[in-house]
């Protein structure tokens, strides 16, 4: 009995040491950057992703969250794919990149040398809700009126969205599919082009960021149809979500940070923790709110699963659009 007791105690002791050893091991070998970190951006200074990256870098610098400086580097071109190709080619633990929707969509169109599977997700920051707005003189008061008109006049209504394949395109396609209508999608180059076309009444409807739209909506220049998001937009609480109107549409841009896939786990963990600290500062929350983004922070583990889910979702929708265009 006594002997047994000793053995059990000894066993427990060894076990405890082992467990602690295993747990404390990563803590001892915790990776830290020993040179400046590059935060890569796929568009030029002043673009949406660029401002996002600069906001992250600023929070990190202001709160001294990282021992090393975090420097934003712009590699514009190829709808951000030049930057992702550079990220893969460098395969460095000191280079991470911010992503936008084109990270998922462009590879699916065959116009990118890389694919999301080449990278490891570090952290997911936020979603950009999409507001579907109507031109100032639009006769439609409700989505039912709009759908009824579209049914009677196929192809007559024009929907302005950015680029030939984006979240905007997917929203238009899903609306067409679920309502059994045919609204014509017209690609524009930027949010401000879409806004100009809407204000001038050149298109019937369009997708916009709520931050861009809200001033015009409050002023009565633009009317809203619905918002493609999980919840109503904070600044425009009267606008229903598509879900509330009975449509399964919540297409939104994910803003996240990634690294090349061969990066060791402790590197990924380091950046994931760093980004988590960023997401918890009041400045960051403030910045997101000002730019019409809705926080949805996921650390590297949680984002891995969600990354896969988002990728599958894009695959289905992009294939639909591509096969229709053929």
């Amino acid at each position: 009995m006594n002997k047994n007791h000793q053995i059990v105690v000894l066993f427990l002791l060894i076990l405890t040491i082992m467990v602690f050893g295993v747990i404390s091991q990563p803590a001892q070998a915790q990776w830290k950057p020993d040179r400046p970190v590059t935060l890569l951006v796929g568009n030029s200074a002043g673009g949406g992703a660029d401002l996002f990256a600069r906001a992250i870098a600023k929070v990190i610098a202001d709160y001294k969250l990282c021992e090393q400086p975090v420097v934003v580097l712009n590699k514009p071109g190829g709808s951000h794919s030049i930057a992702y190709a550079y990220l893969r080619e460098q395969a460095s633990p000191y280079i991470i990149a911010v992503t936008s929707s084109s990270y998922f969509t462009v590879p699916l169109t065959g116009n990118s040398p890389v694919s999301p599977t080449d990278f490891t997700p570090i952290a997911h920051f936020s979603k950009d809700p999409n507001m579907v707005v109507l031109q100032p003189k639009s006769p439609f008061k409700t989505i039912e009126e709009l759908v009824a008109f579209a049914k009677a006049n196929p192809g007559k209504l024009k929907f302005a969205g950015s680029s030939n394949l984006s979240d905007d395109t997917i929203i238009c396609e899903l609306l067409n599919e679920q309502a059994g209508i045919n609204i014509q999608y017209v690609p524009f180059e930027s949010g401000s082009d879409i806004l100009a076309a809407l204000l001038g009444g050149h298109v019937d409807m369009g997708a916009m960021s709520p931050a861009e739209a809200s001033e015009h909506v409050k002023n009565g220049d633009l009317r809203t149809l619905a918002v493609s998001a999980f919840d109503r937009y904070r600044d425009l609480p009267d606008v229903p979500t598509f879900k509330e109107l009975g449509y399964d549409i919540d297409q939104q841009q994910s803003r996240a940070v990634i690294i090349e896939k061969s990066a060791p786990a402790e590197v990924v963990t380091y950046y994931s923790d760093l980004m988590k600290k960023v997401s918890q500062t009041p400045e960051w929350e403030d910045w997101l709110a000002k730019n019409g983004m809705v926080p949805m922070f996921l650390d590297s583990n949680d984002y891995k699963a969600y990354h896969q889910e988002v990728l599958e979702d894009y695959k289905v929708n992009v294939d639909k659009i591509l096969s229709k265009n053929k």
């Binding site: 030049i82 030939n164 265009n325």
Partner: peptide, 19 residues
């Protein structure tokens, strides 16, 4: 890249020419 269809035109496969 073609604005409407997204098809490549005279890009020789170089991503630098896509835009």
């Amino acid at each position: 890249l073609d604005l409407v269809t997204g098809g490549q035109r005279y890009t020789l496969g170089a991503i630098q020419l896509f835009e």
